[in-house]
Amino acid sequence: MGQKINPLGFRLGTTQSHHSFWFAKPKDFPAELQEDERIRDSIKNYVQKNLMKVSSDFEGIIRIEIHKYKELNTTQVKIDFGRQNLLTREEEEEKDDKEEKKKLELLKTKAKIIIQLIPEPYEEPHILAEYIALQLKNRIPLGKAMQKVIELMEETDIKGIRIQIAGCIGGKERAHVQWIREGRLPLQTIRAKIKYCSYKVQTPHGVLGIKIWMFVDFVDEEFVDFVDEEFVDEEFVDEE
């Protein structure tokens, strides 16, 4: 009883796919895994140091996919952004150039970054979690912040959401958990497409943990395609 599991890992191979796509020998696996972590950290650090100063406190990164082609000695990184008014065409090119140089230094291989803007950012739990974190930093009451997220969710096609916040909420000495749910959330159904994120926020009263589950819809297909055909750049691969 009380056994919890990550809803994304629970659905790998059915309604969820991996964030990294590559094969490696057992002895090379730890190094490849650490390399992926460095790529993601460098991208997030770049956004925090540059883009967040220009626009707002929103990081806006929803997903970072890494594809490695060892036989071609190349790496492709796809970044899904949820802030449509943040990146202009010139900023995209500038970010692509700077980040590509960083990847060349880190990976010592040929790297290419693809930036994709998500048309419906409020359907992504990472964006909503960052919104709640921003409200808490501004000392907005927790209940008001969560209710606003519910209102934003109702404007989308999401069928259900659950928001859970844990920690010393409101400056109380004892840590506790508060949560709110709206709509359906079939976590035990594997063919139910669930979006999930876990986010930490530093407040004047300590660190709070934000978790958001979102129910999109039921998936009829038995398996999902692990390789996104639109993501694979044939011209980039054929250059070698």
Rank of each mutant, 00 (worst) to 15 (best):
T156I: 12
K172L: 14
I115Q: 08
L117A: 09
K195P: 14
M153V: 15
I115T: 09
Y122M: 15
R191N: 15
K112I: 07
I169M: 02
I190M: 10
W179G: 07
Q164N: 06
W179N: 06
R184F: 12
K110P: 06
R184N: 14
E155H: 12
K108E: 15
T156P: 14
L187M: 02
I140E: 03
I150W: 07
L107A: 09
L107M: 11
Y199T: 03
V177A: 04
P121M: 03
T156R: 00
K137M: 07
I118E: 08
I150F: 10
E130I: 07
I163H: 08
G170S: 06
L136T: 01
K193G: 04
G171E: 03
T109K: 10
I165G: 03
E105C: 10
P141C: 05
I190C: 08
K195V: 07
I190D: 01
E155L: 15
K144G: 10
C168Y: 00
E173C: 03
P141H: 07
A145C: 10
L136A: 01
N138Q: 13
R162I: 08
K172W: 07
Q164W: 01
T109S: 11
Q188R: 02
G171K: 00
C197V: 12
I115R: 05
A111K: 02
L152M: 15
V177R: 02
K193Q: 05
L136Y: 00
L117E: 11
P125Y: 10
L128S: 08
